[in-house]
Amino acid sequence: MVDGIEMTETQKKTRRRRSIAIAIVLAALVVVFYVSTIVKFGPAILDRPF
């Protein structure tokens, strides 16, 4: 929060909602890239040296 600035209730509420929305979108992006990587590797994902 920015010190010295008093936010109105509406501003606090909408900022919280925007933060939640951004968090959801970022989490979704992580899932999308994770699953897509596995899908694009295909069965080859298991081909690795031990």
Binding site: G4, I5, E6, M7, T8, T10, Q11, T14, R15, R17, R18, I20, A21
Partner: peptide, 17 residues
């Protein structure tokens, strides 16, 4: 100048998702 001002006075966003 804006220290101590209210959020409404400096036009902080009230946009909803």
């Amino acid at each position: 100048e804006i220290e101590g001002m209210k959020g409404s006075e400096i036009g902080l966003s009230e946009a909803d998702p």
